[in-house]
């Protein structure tokens, strides 16, 4: 076959796959884009809509509730991801040591991460229960707490408690990636460093961390993107309460579209959230490109 014909055949064979990708990715995206410029509302017969131009976006700029939701989401993302990274690296370092039963512990590590988010959320709701929750029992028995308290009913603690539940579930992913990264750090670097008189602390900062930084930062960005669109854990644990103190952007978009049935402005909020995620995705792409250049 001539090269040109070969090309044509290749494209022909790829067409079905490209068509499917366009259908499942581009169509919903374009549909959302169109909706965002209308005042469409969801009815039993589909959308009823009128073109409103940029009105939805103008409203978003002025919406203090949405700004609050962005604040909650940012707080959740920063706190949970940074603690997950620190915890993940520490656990990875521990599991990189030789000790008896290491394989078993490594296998156990996967467990929280393998749990469905909904199961995890229900489980932590039970742990935080104000009447018979085990957290209350533990803290009162060791004397840290005078009386049982309501963790998810208090705006001062609700968000942090959800973050704790999220960390427990998601740090194993970071730990696993860091652990994999540790295997690639050459052993002779450590031997040379010891010969030069570097202590454990220096070895960690000068060899270990730079060695795993590449994979770790990718994991971090991916986790951050995921954390930013968090929905299910809040849906089960707090439903945005108390007094809206744990309402995240995804929950906000959901409510706008499916509880208030405003598909138009819901889509506009969704696009705004997507734009924020896109920023993080851009960071991720830049990182990937840099890594490829280096290797």
């Amino acid at each position: 076959m001539a090269p040109a014909q070969q090309d044509r055949t290749a494209w022909l064979l790829l067409t079905p796959m490209i068509a499917i990708m366009v259908l499942v990715t581009a169509f919903p995206l374009l549909n959302t884009l169109w909706l965002a410029f209308t005042d469409a509302s969801l009815t039993g017969q589909g959308y009823v809509w009128q073109w409103v131009g940029l009105e939805n976006f103008a409203y978003i700029l002025d919406d203090s509730d949405f700004r609050a939701a962005v604040g909650h989401t940012a707080y959740f993302t920063v706190l949970s991801v940074s603690i997950e990274v620190v915890l993940g690296v520490l656990v990875a370092l521990l599991l990189n040591q030789e000790f008896k039963g290491r394989t078993l512990v490594r296998a156990l590590l996967i467990l929280p991460w393998a749990l469905p988010t909904i199961v995890n959320a229900v489980m932590w709701r039970l742990i935080y229960n104000p009447e018979y929750g085990s957290l209350n029992a533990l803290l009162t028995q060791i004397g840290l707490l005078d009386a049982y308290r309501s963790w998810l009913g208090d705006p001062a603690t609700a968000m942090n408690m959800v973050i704790l539940a999220d960390i427990w579930k998601n740090y194993p992913l970071i730990a696993l990636i860091a652990l994999a990264g540790l295997q690639t750090v050459p052993k002779d670097l450590y031997e040379a460093a010891i010969m030069d008189g570097a202590n454990a602390w220096t070895r960690f900062w000068k060899i270990t961390l730079p060695g795993i930084m590449g994979s770790l930062s990718v994991a971090m960005v991916l986790r951050a993107i995921e954390a930013f669109k968090v929905f299910d854990i809040f849906y089960v644990m707090t439903r945005g309460g108390p007094a809206d103190s744990t309402k995240t952007v995804s929950f906000f978009v959901y409510q706008e579209s499916f509880t208030y049935l405003r598909a138009g402005s819901g889509a506009a909020y969704a696009l705004t959230v997507t734009a924020m995620s896109a920023l993080m995705i851009a960071i991720y792409v830049v990182m990937l490109v840099r890594r490829e250049k280096r290797s």
Partner: peptide, 14 residues
């Protein structure tokens, strides 16, 4: 005070 995080089923249990 826990009423502020309770639904009907929680009330029933208490």
């Amino acid at each position: 005070p826990n009423s502020r995080e309770y639904l009907e089923e929680d009330v029933r249990k208490v």
